[in-house]
Design a protein around this nucleic acid. Structure first.
Lengths: 194, 194
DNA sequence: TCTTGCCTACCTTCTGGTAGGTAGCTTGTC
DNA sequence: GACAAGCTACCTACCAGAAGGTAGGCAAGA
């Protein structure tokens, strides 16, 4: 039943890789067909229109992130560790090139030309991430392990922006190491050594 | 002689607006032709290929930025004021929607699918911006007006990433105010109140 | 037998790009 | 000053291929 590699999943995986490389207009059904080893028309069988495909993809991405964060909440109790794990996750993805950019961050840059249904999913990701980070930061502040300069909400937005900006720079310089150069001090800022 | 609105300039201005909305594959010669009031073929007269148009556009953008920063260096002597002006410039652009995203930041996200000649111009912008910020931060540190937590180079990359990340978030939330929420604390971090 | 998943074949529109022509300047030369 | 030559900026009319998408058929499994 829950096969790990259905054709629909192959299509979604392939589309994700292509979107991460160049955004919504950076790939076509023909590109996917060539990689997955299927005909263009067969993709329409699974996803009638391109917007359906990308909406599904972003929705699934968002669910994966939510599951990942829920898992993190279980495994790592302390707020500092959670932030460190969140930053570390992306540092690993960018270093090993497995996911060198956040799907939603890339799509967010193109919001003006995105189909509305896709844009909504992208916005939902930002709200979700923002609220998770806010609650982690609030808990860290209350238990004294994190030092916030502003509100938890503002600090959450700063962290998100730093991560996305670091992705842009890593790509611009073609150097994964720049991601850590930017994000490590952001953690130290919240959790300064005495 | 130096007319302020030649057709070539109209084309470049229009293309810049369209790129800022959706990146390299987010616009076509037909889009530009419709706005400028010219035929598609006439655009090819000025810019033989799309890559030529975008390379020229990015080169010109980079020169404008360089001129702007040189002007800033003259007008504003103190490093804190320079950083404030740099952040304030973008805050104004995003708030009044005149230039709601940095051309090079947007193109940088799509580097894997960019023509090499365009990618090179984009990288050059990042290097230029990074070196300007580094020198401003170094001077601020030496004269005691700025407090750096890391090297000037690292702090420069942090600032760049914050600005670009803040653009992404402002677009994602559809809220220009978020740009200031993110960038103001980044300045306070370098120039803390006593 | 009905559904699922894929196919071939086709359509329309858009894409970047080319060929060739023309009207209106600027030239240089006599 | 006359006039051909050449250049600039634009045009119409194409083109090949890629874009997203549709219609209808066929084979295999529930």
């Amino acid at each position: 039943m829950s096969n790990l590699s259905t054709t629909a999943d192959d299509i979604l995986r392939c589309a994700r890789t292509l979107i991460v490389a160049g955004g919504y207009n950076g790939f076509s059904y023909a590109d996917i067909a060539a990689v997955v080893g299927i005909r263009k028309a067969s993709i329409h069988h699974h996803f009638p229109a391109k917007a359906d495909l990308v909406r599904t993809l972003v929705f699934q991405y968002r669910q994966e992130v939510e599951a990942g964060l829920a898992n993190l909440d279980q495994r790592v109790p302390d707020p500092v560790g959670k932030i460190r794990a969140y930053l570390g996750f992306w540092e690993a993805c960018i270093t090993d090139q497995s996911l060198p950019f956040c799907v939603c961050a890339l799509l967010a840059t193109q919001i003006p030309i995105l189909p509305e249904e896709v844009a909504q999913e992208v916005r939902a990701h930002f709200r979700m991430l923002s609220s998770w980070l806010s609650s982690v930061l609030t808990r860290g502040k209350n238990q004294g392990s994190l030092h916030l300069n502003g509100t938890a909400e503002a600090e959450a937005e700063i962290l998100i922006a730093a991560v996305h900006g670091a992705m842009v720079s890593a790509r611009a310089y073609g150097d994964p190491a720049i991601f850590g150069v930017i994000t490590h001090p952001m953690l130290e800022r919240l959790n300064p050594p005495p």
